[in-house]
């Protein structure tokens, strides 16, 4: 498989994502410019990644403008035809704004930007992964109905937890509903998460837990 990483003018994690995929995970990566539209070089087996950052400044709701970009129109089409899409941080916000994922990301409960290592766990797996977060609007929110279907269909990918895998109030960095850190769509081809696995893939940084995330999503390690 290969990856396409979309570069919006205000993306600032695009280089980190490309670095993690190319250098740490040895994957083929093609950078994609937000003003372009062409995704013909990608098949359903491939994945388009929306990286973190401030796509168009995010002075409006985060991701609200990015969803209308030429490239996003193609990404939406790609996802609807079964292609894989991963959104991290601002990418997750864009996926929610574009309707590819349900729910919304609200301003953090404590009203402040937060950047630190947090722990997240997969549903049914107590092992906690240490992954950094860095966001001002990362509090996942969805209606009761949506939450029920997310839970019923096993669409919750990750929840915030403590280092022992326990869900506690203090381990939720932004007040997300049900401590949700990442979800996928019903078709299981569109993934969104607030934590940054691309910042935790290198032994020189003393944290390679991000590899576990890429392994789970795409079978990479």
């Amino acid at each position: 498989m290969k990856f396409g990483v979309v570069v919006f003018p205000g993306s600032n994690c695009d280089r980190d994502m490309i670095g993690a995929l190319c250098d740490d995970l040895k994957q083929e990566v093609i950078p994609l410019w937000h003003k372009d539209k062409d995704l013909s070089m990608f098949s359903k087996e491939d994945c388009i990644v929306l990286p973190g950052g401030f796509s168009y400044g995010d002075y409006l709701r985060c991701g609200a403008i990015a969803r209308f970009s030429p490239m996003m129109n193609s990404v939406i089409e790609f996802a609807n035809s079964g292609g894989k899409v991963l959104g991290v941080c601002n990418g997750f916000q864009i996926l929610c704004e574009s309707g590819l994922l349900p729910g919304a990301l609200l301003r953090n409960a404590h009203q402040q930007f937060v950047c630190k290592n947090v722990f997240i766990k997969e549903e049914g797996n107590p092992a906690a992964l240490k992954i950094p977060v860095a966001h001002g609007e990362g509090r996942y929110f969805a209606s009761e109905e949506v939450l029920k279907s997310l839970n019923d269909n096993g669409q919750v990918l990750y929840r915030y937890c403590d280092e022992n895998g326990k869900l506690t109030d203090t381990s939720n960095p932004n007040g997300a509903t049900e401590a949700i850190a990442g979800i996928c769509n019903e078709g299981r081809n569109v993934f969104g998460m607030m934590p940054h696995p691309e910042r935790a893939c290198s032994n020189i940084l003393n944290n390679e837990d991000g590899r576990v995330v890429f392994s789970k999503l795409f079978g990479l390690s």
Binding site: F113, V114, I204, N207
Partner: peptide, 16 residues
């Protein structure tokens, strides 16, 4: 904690 200290994936002193 209010500053992004890790963008760039080069901050070694975060975990060490």
């Amino acid at each position: 904690d209010q500053y992004d200290s890790m963008v760039g994936a080069g901050t070694v002193s975060t975990n060490a």
